[in-house]
Nucleic acid binder design. Structure first.
Lengths: 242, 242
DNA sequence: TGACAATTTCCTGTATACAATCTGTATATG
DNA sequence: CATATACAGATTGTATACAGGAAATTGTCA
């Protein structure tokens, strides 16, 4: 029927996510199913499935009388979500260290760190910056994988799906700062040390490092809140009441 | 139409959960929507919503060609889920200690510990045992609440929803063991120490204790696996391939 | 007898129609 | 003038019908 052969429900999920992140819907605002269905050119059935899914993801909250509203997040929520990511990534790398990982995977991690080094060392041009964002996301996904635990990995993915808790959430804002390079260097030091700790089976050190690494995001959050112009470069902050 | 005024979708969630936990459906088995709908006396629409929800809960897994299957868990998955609960409860009590909690809530925790003491001290009659299970669940729910972080609290609820990761999962099996009383005393010591640590703002100690406390469940898991007769008293283990 | 292919059956994903409930407004009454 | 009530509109929750596709069964051929 439709020219896109993508499942309608997936299109609905992507569409609503986009609408929420773009800030077109205020937190607390009730979502009209019929209006959304019309706007996204989708029937109500797959749209409803999408809304239920986004509620589980934490982007929507159910209204007692029925239907869903855009969930608003407080500044504390953002802090806690970042803290939680640090805790979970810390657990992943601790388990990796304690239980051991295949040498092949360690090598992949080392190569990723080297690639990040390359990008970090050079001048912060835009193209390289985007490359950094990708590599960074890849590295963090690998950390979750190194745990060897699908349960832990899935949970990290879930928390990371909250947009402001993602490892890349504040990179774009950060790139505008003069302290950009320095901060990236610190992050890179963390990356390198985490891999080394896993290699040496130093679980506690790996865990501590991952937690401290997540604190960088919290630091950038504070900066973004101080400078309104920076906050505008973090679309996920549209959900956060300031 | 139906005599129960409960929403159909809720009935569907409860019904499917019950069917899965009772072990009537083998892991990996595809769920037929029409059959389930007929069995639960619900239309396909709310049933579908229920299946999608249970997938997010982790009880079902999507089949590439469409539909859902009962998710099977390995022994390692159970271990990791318990570990994860320990980590998250540890985070909750650490945050409680670091950030502080209202004295009123501390008092509630202390009263719960006292109530658990009362039950633990006496002879392990059945009625008291059930009381213990309730109080224990209440205590662990309170720990999540003490974090003061809705984000952390929600995440604990989610992990705990995996039946074998719940704080009460192995209590029933444990009650059959001669070492029952001793184990309960150890758990109680943990409970008491955790509350004390929160009171004294000793975050690290509180976190360690909560993690160690979760290890009791892992210990009981090992016992249950050794003794098949015990495993039968843990319905959640129907999902676990042994 | 076994393998392959075609047909048939069944299943899911989607659309739409219907029913029940909730919300907001306007009116009537104390 | 304030409050309660009733009615109308809108919105969600549910049921069912339909279409596309996967899987199984059966029949045929080597």
């Amino acid at each position: 029927m439709s020219e896109t052969q993508q499942p309608q429900s997936l299109r609905a999920v992507l569409g609503v996510r986009e609408l929420i992140f773009s800030g077109s819907m205020r937190p607390g605002e009730r979502l009209s199913e019929v209006a959304l269905a019309k706007q996204l050119e989708v029937s109500r059935t797959p749209l409803r499935a999408a809304l239920a899914r986004l509620e589980q993801e934490g982007l929507l909250e159910p209204i007692p009388s029925g239907g869903f509203a855009v969930r608003g997040f407080s500044q504390d929520d953002v802090i806690d979500a970042i803290e939680l990511r640090g805790v979970l990534e810390g657990t992943a790398v601790r388990l990796a260290a304690e239980r051991g990982v295949q040498p092949a995977k360690i090598q992949i991690a080392q190569r990723l760190v080297a690639a990040l080094d390359e990008v970090t060392g050079n001048s912060p041009e835009e193209t390289l910056f985007e490359k950094y964002v990708d590599l960074n996301a890849e590295f963090h996904a690998l950390l979750a994988d190194l745990s060897g635990s699908p349960i832990v990995q899935k949970e990290i993915e879930r928390v990371t799906r909250l947009p402001f808790a993602s490892p890349s959430a504040f990179l774009d804002a950060q790139s505008q700062l003069t302290s950009f390079r320095a901060s990236l260097q610190v992050g890179q030091a963390h990356h390198r040390a985490i891999v080394e700790a896993i290699e040496l089976r130093e679980g506690s050190r790996a865990e501590s490092l991952a937690r401290e690494h997540a604190r960088l995001a919290r630091q950038n959050l504070a900066l973004a809140i101080e400078h309104q112009d920076l906050a505008k470069r973090v679309p996920a902050l549209a959900l956060v009441a300031i």
